[in-house]
């Protein structure tokens, strides 16, 4: 549509500036990973791939990466199962307090991560007497991942309604056949988007993780955080960070392939 010229131009300029604001720091990380300066001086005095070699060989970074992948996979599986069950449960029944439950499901993303993290640590250690381990991280991560799966699945249900399933039942299919042949294919891309989002959230999460991880379990974000302030490790951390920036293009690409309207599933992210 036509906005007045002056407004158009000022909007154009501000948007360009905002984009610069968004991308300059990320590009700087990429650039600094090749810089010979350990203190990120600008402009970089010279360029080298030395840090990338060191980072590639770093044992700590590798182990942390593997831990992160395992935690994220487990949390995603739990979230997929429970999140879609919750969405299906809320869809069929109109029980008392349905809205309250919907609001409650939002809580884990509306409350700061530090509250969630502390609540879980306290719950595990003080109340239940369980030692922190990889599993406590998984449980805590799954809690907010459930929300993203739930949101995706619920949005899909709201859009598609229940007519196909009713038709299937009318044609003589049992509940399981209907689920397998109708409900599941209907939900497939919503589930994939939810899984992608869950994996990303869990992989990246640090606040809740610091509170629910034992001293020996290091996910990649925790490894980065612990090595950030060590002058010797700083360039290696920078390389890992740069690699993560590059990798973040993968889920975006997948999400685009997955659904034409990526905005549907992705905006509800914490």
């Amino acid at each position: 549509m036509r906005l007045p010229g002056g407004l158009r131009i000022s909007l154009w300029v501000t948007s360009a500036l905002v984009l610069v604001f968004i991308y300059v720091p990320l590009l700087l990380v990429l650039l600094n990973s090749f810089s010979t300066s350990r203190t990120f001086a600008w402009p970089p005095p010279a360029y080298t791939t030395h840090w990338w070699q060191l980072a590639w060989q770093s044992q700590g970074a590798r182990e942390a990466l593997w831990t992160s992948v395992r935690v994220a996979l487990a949390a995603t599986v739990v979230a997929l199962v429970l999140g879609s069950l919750a969405a299906m449960g809320l869809r069929r029944t109109r029980f008392f307090g349905r809205n309250v439950v919907s609001l409650l499901i939002l809580l884990p993303i509306a409350l700061p991560g530090i509250v969630t993290g502390l609540a879980f640590q306290n719950g595990f250690r003080t109340i239940l007497g369980i030692d922190l381990s990889l599993w406590t991280i998984v449980i805590a991560h799954a809690t907010f991942c459930i929300v993203t799966v739930f949101n995706n699945v619920q949005a899909r249900f709201a859009r598609l309604g229940g007519n196909f399933e009713q038709a299937s039942m009318d044609l003589g299919a049992g509940p399981f056949t209907t689920f397998r042949l109708i409900t599941l294919p209907m939900l497939r891309s919503a589930l994939l988007a939810g899984a992608l989002l869950s994996f990303g959230l869990s992989f990246d999460e640090i606040v809740v993780t610091t509170f629910t991880a034992s001293a020996t379990d290091q996910t990649l974000p925790i490894w980065i955080f612990q090595n950030l302030f060590r002058p010797n490790q700083a360039p290696i951390v920078n390389c890992v960070a740069a690699a993560l920036v590059l990798f973040s293009a993968i889920p975006i690409y997948l999400a685009q392939r997955l659904s034409g309207s990526s905005a549907e599933g992705m905006t509800g992210a914490r």
Partner: peptide
Amino acid sequence: PLWASYLVKAYAWRG
């Protein structure tokens, strides 16, 4: 940038 790690972004500003 939402998919780029939170930590990386905070770290970018340190640089």
